[in-house]
Write a protein that binds this DNA or RNA. Structure first.
Lengths: 188, 188
DNA sequence: TTTATTATTTGACCTAAGTCAAATGTATAG
DNA sequence: CTATACATTTGACTTAGGTCAAATAATAAA
């Protein structure tokens, strides 16, 4: 577990019960089936989705081609970030890749709860910091590593990714073509 | 100006004078000369640097080669993000590319001020959201655009960048070689 | 099962961008 | 003003990865 996740975990375990209760009060468990859309392009992302089980992905269309930007596993939070923050139409889709269970929290309810429970604002900040660090790391990979290296790192962090997920999504997530990914896998 | 910047600006103009005074009280104006290091690798990033005038860059070393990750202009905030958030040694350098003036704010002083003035925590969140959106956009460019397109977009957003800044830094920032950038410029 | 349908692999060829090397241009220090 | 260092351009060649097309696998549906 990385340092920021540790920090977040630690913070949550120290939360007072009132704050925790308030958070639980605005969250609902939901289920989606494989292939279901959790969010579509042009919709406003009015909820955050904490993945309890299953796999999902986020993607957008670029010249009609799907570009997968994130693959979500257990304990990841799925949102279209700018759509959520600014409550504007999303450029991205979020889709279940397997049957999944999520804990869904309403944006407005969360904003309201933060006013009463300032520690939720701190939690929000910490999670946003975590996302920014994740983006920095991903950008670093695009900036300095070739396709093979990026694939190796993905495998190290998510060895199970090859079991569940069609290659197209993985290739797109890595920013390479399907064929190139197939060739990388064939070697070694 | 993008929507998030607008949101931040709006928030700042509505801040009560106590909060504003508290923020000013922990900020100091500083000057650096061209070439000076504002932050070195392995140092902890204990300050944030609001650029008032001049140009700076952030970079890290990868196999002995400098990779420029960000170029800062007026009103940008320079920090090594994870070093600042986690107060751990920085992997990045921050260096003045021209003589610059910054408003420098101490990390610990800011954390303390946030406890007394909760609106500073909200401001912190908004600025972190802004950084995450900026990273998402940059990642999008690496994910979907070729070198020429990325250069064009950089030029649109920062037409003055070619006046001041050596090509090596720009090429590195765009993730391409110096020679390729020179050829892109020669065309068109 | 058999047949569709969807995933993955493999081959042949092409292109964007990298590398190495040399030439030219532009600053800056004496 | 000249010399030395640094920046940029240009050329020749290489390579990672893309594209298009066809061949297999593997699933799901009938």
């Amino acid at each position: 577990m990385n340092a920021q996740l540790y920090k977040i975990n630690d913070f949550i375990t120290r939360l007072d019960t009132e704050t925790l209760t308030a958070l639980k009060a605005i969250s609902v468990e939901k289920k989606f089936k494989k292939g279901d859309f959790i969010l579509r392009q042009d919709e406003i992302c009015r909820k955050s989705y904490w993945i309890e089980s299953g796999v999902a992905r986020k993607y957008y269309l670029n010249d009609g081609k799907e570009i997968t930007t994130e693959i979500y596993f257990d304990n990841d939070i799925a949102i279209s970030f700018d759509s959520y923050c600014l409550q504007k139409p999303s450029r991205e889709f979020v889709q279940a890749l397997t049957d999944i269970t999520v804990s869904q929290t309403d944006f407005i309810a969360f904003q309201t709860a933060k006013l009463k429970f300032p520690k939720l604002e701190t939690l929000d900040l910490m999670m946003t910091e975590y996302y920014a660090m994740w983006l920095e790391d991903r950008l670093f990979q695009f900036h300095t590593m070739d396709a093979t290296k990026r694939y190796q790192i993905l495998l190290e962090n998510h060895p199970h990714i090859i079991q569940n997920i069609p290659l197209t999504f993985i290739a797109s997530y890595l920013g390479i073509s399907l064929e190139t990914l197939s060739r990388i896998r064939a070697k070694k």
